[in-house]
Amino acid sequence: MNLTSEAAKIYVAGHRGMVGQAIWSHLEDAGYTNLVGRTSDELDLRDPHATRQFFKAERPDFVVLAAARVGGILANDRYPADFIGDNLAIQQSVIQAAHDTGVNRLLFLGSTCIYPKHASQPMSEDSLLSGPLEPTNQWYAVAKIAGHKLCEAMHRQHDDDMLTLMPTNLYGPGDDFNLETSHVLPALLRKAHEAKEAAPDGSDAPVTLWGSGEPKREFLYVEDLADAVRFVLETHEDEVRDVAPDGMLNVGVGKDLSINDLMALIQDVVGHDGPVEHDRSKPDGTPRKLVDTSRLDTLGWTADTPLRKGIEKTYDWYLEQELLNVER
Rank of each mutant, 00 (worst) to 15 (best):
R241P: 13
L296T: 08
K255F: 06
P215V: 00
G31F: 13
V326Y: 05
D44Q: 10
A75T: 08
T302N: 11
G274Y: 09
G31E: 11
L88P: 04
E327F: 01
D201F: 00
L307E: 03
Y171A: 03
D61K: 10
A228K: 09
F62L: 10
L233E: 11
T4H: 13
P60C: 05
R295I: 10
F83Q: 04
A303Y: 02
F177R: 05
V253G: 05
L225V: 05
M123W: 02
L319Y: 00
F231W: 03
L189C: 04
A195M: 00
D304E: 13
R46G: 15
T208W: 03
E237H: 15
G247M: 11
T235W: 07
A198G: 14
G310V: 02
L109M: 10
V253K: 05
K149W: 12
T136M: 01
W210C: 06
G147V: 10
V326H: 06
P173N: 09
R288A: 14
F62V: 09
G252L: 03
L185G: 02
L296V: 12
T164L: 11
L209P: 07
C113W: 07
L189K: 04
R69T: 15
S281F: 08
V270F: 13
G300K: 07
F231G: 12
A68S: 15
E42Q: 15
L220Q: 04
E197Y: 08
D176S: 10
V184E: 02
F108G: 00
T305W: 01
V229L: 12
F219L: 12
E6P: 13
T164F: 13
L129N: 07
L109C: 01
E223G: 05
I23D: 06
P306W: 09
E320W: 02
A198P: 04
L179Y: 08
T168M: 09
V70G: 01
E237P: 10
C151R: 09
L65W: 14
Y318L: 11
D160A: 12
I84K: 04
L307M: 09
R59D: 06
M123F: 08
Y115G: 01
A97H: 00
E237A: 15
I90F: 04
I10Y: 00
V232H: 08
E214I: 05
L27Q: 09
D261M: 11
A81C: 10
H278W: 11
